[in-house]
Design a protein around this nucleic acid. Sequence first.
DNA 1: AATGAATGAGTCTTCATTCAT
DNA 2: CATGAATGAAGACTCATTCAT
Lengths: 199, 199, 199, 199
Amino acid sequence: MMNRKNTHLENKRLRIINGAITVFSRKGFYKAKIEEIAEQAEVGKGTVYEYFSSKKELFLEMFLYIEEKYETMFQQELSGIEIFYDRLQKMFEVTMQFLNNHKEMAHILLAGYPSVAEDHQKVLLDKNRQKLTEISNILEEAIFRQEIRPVDTTLAAQVILGALLFVGGQILFSKGEKVPGFEQSAQHLADIFLQGLAI
Amino acid sequence: MMNRKNTHLENKRLRIINGAITVFSRKGFYKAKIEEIAEQAEVGKGTVYEYFSSKKELFLEMFLYIEEKYETMFQQELSGIEIFYDRLQKMFEVTMQFLNNHKEMAHILLAGYPSVAEDHQKVLLDKNRQKLTEISNILEEAIFRQEIRPVDTTLAAQVILGALLFVGGQILFSKGEKVPGFEQSAQHLADIFLQGLAI
Amino acid sequence: MMNRKNTHLENKRLRIINGAITVFSRKGFYKAKIEEIAEQAEVGKGTVYEYFSSKKELFLEMFLYIEEKYETMFQQELSGIEIFYDRLQKMFEVTMQFLNNHKEMAHILLAGYPSVAEDHQKVLLDKNRQKLTEISNILEEAIFRQEIRPVDTTLAAQVILGALLFVGGQILFSKGEKVPGFEQSAQHLADIFLQGLAI
Amino acid sequence: MMNRKNTHLENKRLRIINGAITVFSRKGFYKAKIEEIAEQAEVGKGTVYEYFSSKKELFLEMFLYIEEKYETMFQQELSGIEIFYDRLQKMFEVTMQFLNNHKEMAHILLAGYPSVAEDHQKVLLDKNRQKLTEISNILEEAIFRQEIRPVDTTLAAQVILGALLFVGGQILFSKGEKVPGFEQSAQHLADIFLQGLAI
DNA sequence: AATGAATGAGTCTTCATTCAT
DNA sequence: CATGAATGAAGACTCATTCAT
């Protein structure tokens, strides 16, 4: 009983988060209207406030929700892969796939709406840092395994994440134009990073 | 006389643009208040509207102003340099230097505030594309000179610009923490791109 | 239940319209402040916008509301009367009575605030034309019945409506001064129109 | 010399008044911009304030200027005419002619923009009253001469002025539609007033 | 728990007016 | 006298948030 109720509630919360994803990413934080999110979620405007105390809070929760999905996807897809080149390629692939499913989030992930964050800024920055650390760890492991040469892993992680997000964004925002398959792009990218540009 | 007047007017327009830079980058587009920009510029609120027809227009003009400065800096600094590695390094250096002077713009350059743009979106996207083309050309030239191996220059340009902006942003937003010298970081970055990560 | 709610909502809409009547007629369109209308209606400023999408729209709706009341009054009072002289007299009487209850509207009915109208101008002009047609019809009927001689009914209708509104307005705006009873004035007017000024 | 200067000044003042006529009547009081009036008059915005202390004052002065022209025209045209019927007809004719030349003023004359007036309301009302008195006098004279029967001249004057303005307005605002010649309309009107509608 | 009607704080923008040149 | 750049008071309108039902 209790359980069913919880599920039911969870569903409503989830519907709202999904409405938020749709609207926030279409309109951005400021142009998104709570009312429209409520409509999307097929709940009443007031109901949104039963689950989230404010628009900002909703934005944050939505962000964390997406982040978590990204993170999970990231972990899962990379789990079995040992070879660094393959991991790198998979990273790009997963990220592009993810951005493709949440196109609109690319901007948000990239720039993080600093002014929106304010109170929650710490949380958002931490998420970013976390992802960088993750990539950093992968790099360090690869260095340890002597798959790659010793480089400043912090810097390299930034370069990779920047590339991931920006290239992903670029590819996705070039609407209408031919978007090469993710796999192929991912291969190219991994290749560039691994082999470098030098002859 | 006429000249002095023109100069005087130009000064006021410039003061407003600088006010806009300060406030927009501190608060973002939506939280920035015209009144505060006017205060910053030490002009009356109404005066802003003598020079710019709307908040959006002011934002666009400010963006173009900054872009142009960046562009000029970019061109100048790269002009004498022939070796690709040096150019790459300089690119990073210039960009970081620039972002350091306009810290606040990093977000804006990165994400382009899509929802703000709307009417002007085309202009903003074009600027981005323009920069990518520029880098692309540098790459093609380097390929032609056989300084680097033949790669997808479009993709590579995106990777480089993404890295430029993101790494720049990262470095700058880690306020309080030790920021390594730009030169050194630029060297590292150029090295990573040129040599790749592989052993 | 449903019914009570509707009634309740209707009431609020009506309260706002009445506030609008009070304020618009005291101050005219441009000097009227939405906030004051809201105060009059004892609702919040925002509530006005729940019911009317803009100040102009509110003005139009108020105008139509008043027009309808005038029209109804007009129809009802004239319904049983056959003799042309009596109808004419009643027309004046009804109009003066009406203007007396909505003093402030006289100007609006007279001049129609052309610049306010703009978008809605057509609606307002149509209302005017409608009233003229109505009077025109009454005149034609009277001509048919040979109660009055054949005249240009369009012109005559204009004369009569002009007189109705202007005289009404004159009488009402001479505040403080002795206003003769409506009935008596109406008789005089009807007499002038019917008998003419000639000896 | 002095004289020429005065003339010159008078010219500038007049140019502004004429600009005001054009703009006020096209846009109405509130939508008219001082700047546009200045443009029309081909003077600087500030210059308007050299001649008129405020927008309201300019409006009033413009109104009086027009009124005077109307008045003069009225007096002149009626001066030689003795027969009441002819005077009545001429009145209509002159008024329509006048409104045709200052189309836009019809509304203003009709309704008098009460809210604009405020401070000057007295002046405007007086002008109106003055015109009514004038017509009243004409009527009294006609009664004295036994050209028309004794009627309430105040009321009759109102009816006539109301008809003058309203019919004039109607005719003029029916843009695009066939407007019968003024003379003919004036004849019809005079006929209706003199003979009445009765058979 | 769910709703949506009601609210008013907050901001862009307009434009009459001023005043230094 | 003439000008127009500068100003800021004022007001329509939006929308997150509340709360009675």
